[in-house]
């Protein structure tokens, strides 16, 4: 009986020792990957930040309206944000590799998952950036066209369009990442549909007379607004 217990303990110890001998080099390798990855990610972050500064990226974000959005969201400037995102992507890549090196059963396939997600995440960021650019361009164009045409509420109209385009960009980006796709899409469709329906009902039923008066006033004002250039030439 005692002999059997001793054999079991010895066997257990041998198993532990052999597992430990196998695990320690992996742990050391994982630690090196983890720490090395941190250093590499820091270097990449610095390089990206300098490249963005050299490209005058802050001006581009200012023009696209992204700077304003980030400021309202109390987030850092776009060049710092991008370099931080790149830092975390690079370091997360190394962390995932380090965990994979340990060959722990629950984390099998983590690397494949990570590298499947990264391109989607980058595409989502691109979609979001393009959304900001398009939204800002349309905002400017609509505001100027409305002011030139003498439309009332030019800022409201152009601002609404800007918000709508940004919202579409955000929804597309979230869909790309695969975050709560159905919920986001459904929420967007319901909100957008309700808004349009509400506007249509308000305009068609509630504001028929007001709309008529508005259009008549608009046409009259437009004629008045079209100042003749002759006295200026």
């Amino acid at each position: 009986m005692i002999q059997e217990i001793a054999d079991a303990l010895v066997q257990s110890w041998r198993n532990f020792a052999s597992a430990f001998v196998l695990f320690v080099p992996r742990l050391v390798a994982a630690t090196i990957i983890f720490a090395g990855g941190f250093v590499i990610a820091l270097v990449v972050r610095r390089a990206i930040q300098r490249a963005l500064m050299w490209m005058n990226f802050d001006r581009l974000t200012l023009r696209s309206g992204a700077s304003e959005m980030l400021r309202l969201a109390e987030m850092p400037p776009a060049d710092i944000l991008i370099s931080k995102i790149v830092f975390w992507i690079v370091w997360l890549g190394f962390i995932v590799s380090a965990v994979d090196t340990l060959q722990l059963a629950p984390f099998q396939g983590l690397v494949e998952e990570f590298f499947r997600l990264v391109p989607r995440f980058l595409v989502a960021l691109l979609v979001l950036s393009i959304g900001f650019l398009v939204a800002n361009f349309l905002w400017r164009a609509t505001l100027l066209a409305s002011v030139n045409a003498g439309l009332p509420g030019a800022r409201l109209l152009s601002g609404s369009l800007r918000v709508l385009v940004i919202a579409i960009g955000v929804v597309m980006a979230l869909e790309q990442v695969g975050l709560a796709t159905s919920v986001v899409l459904a929420a967007f469709a319901i909100t957008f549909g309700a808004l349009m329906l509400g506007l249509a009902i308000a305009f068609g039923l509630g504001g028929r007379e007001a709309a008529k008066a508005l259009l008549e006033e608009q046409l009259r004002t437009k004629r008045e607004r079209e100042s003749d250039a002759a006295p200026h030439l």
Binding site: A229, H232, L233
Partner: peptide, 13 residues
């Protein structure tokens, strides 16, 4: 002579 055509001020500027 008077300018030819009837351009709007906005367009001309």
């Amino acid at each position: 002579s008077a300018p030819v055509g009837r351009a709007t001020l906005r367009d001309v500027v």
